[in-house]
Design a protein around this nucleic acid. Structure first.
Lengths: 166, 166
DNA sequence: TATTGTTATACTCTATAACTATA
DNA sequence: TATAGTTATAGAGTATAACAATA
């Protein structure tokens, strides 16, 4: 992604008559990035994802899986339909998240007595045991993501983002 | 996506012995979202994308296409290889962006005399004419995205995001 | 040999529609 | 009839590998 201009060109000599092509510079009327919040958001998101996968891929986790795992940990016994609704994704998407968490050993599907249509989603013993490690990793991730920001600035950023997503 | 807790439960009576399941609440040790900047970033990004497509789909544009279009408008005559490098995407991805912009009537591939391998990417007359409209739409998009933020807060957010993506 | 653009292919994430088995 | 979970399928986005034409 083009983050910034290659270099300031203000010190360059003016173009000589027709010797140069009309090549616009960042900051001109066709520069739809430099002052675009949507674009900055996209770049920040890309950086956050890169860092996330770098740090958490060894645990077989993606951002979406962590969210799903967190919901299951907070509401043990929940089912896929409730999970899909809470995550605001379609049924098959929730199913894949559950499949992923299950094959990575984090959770298990348990039959529900009284309703043979649904599964109760529960942490495995291994998953339970690994939650502490995950919490540490996530704290480390957040720390690295906000390297260079003070605690106050980090909170400011959270607040401003929250007011955006409202 | 689960944005906030359903409601504060602090006013509830304490659980009676074994009458309740151990159901954790947001803010507890398994809540990996509430205080996670990465998560807030994801939500804000989702909101930004939704709004973008709502407002700019009629122009056959996606965020990536706008970035590509902007680069072409700022560097008329550039080619796909240069575009791919500037966008930090693989060749076939740049090709699809160019295909999309071309079939939407924004740009055209022009043969380059002296090097029959490459195309010169240029705005069409129609594309040229629609740039002003696009600029307006993007300004309106930014305004709607930051509804509720002051100009100072918007700039703060840009700066903080920039320091994140560094 | 290297470069430009292209095609073929694959993988991920997302969605909808249709199916099954249960309720 | 409605619900829970699943399968099949499709589309957007990304990537790599292999290829043709040209330099």
């Amino acid at each position: 992604m083009p983050r910034t201009a290659p270099s300031p060109k203000s010190a360059e000599p003016a173009p000589r008559a027709k010797a140069r092509r009309p090549r616009a510079e960042p900051g001109d009327v066709f520069d739809f990035q430099s002052n675009a919040l949507g674009y900055q958001l996209r770049l920040a998101q890309l950086r956050a994802f890169d860092l996330f996968f770098e740090m958490l891929a060894p645990l077989d986790l993606s951002p979406a899986r962590v969210t799903a795992l967190s919901l299951i940990a907070m509401s043990p016994g929940t089912n896929q339909a409730a999970l899909a609704k809470a995550l605001n994704v379609a049924g098959p998407s929730a199913l894949k998240l559950v499949d992923g968490l299950e094959s990575a050993g984090w959770i298990r599907r348990v039959e529900v007595e009284g309703d043979r249509r649904r599964y109760s989603l529960q942490l495995t013993e291994q998953g339970q045991a690994r939650l502490a490690q995950l919490r540490e990793k996530l704290a480390e991730y957040e720390a690295r993501l906000t390297t260079g920001l003070s605690a106050v600035e980090r909170q400011q950023l959270m607040d401003l983002l929250g007011r955006l997503a409202r």
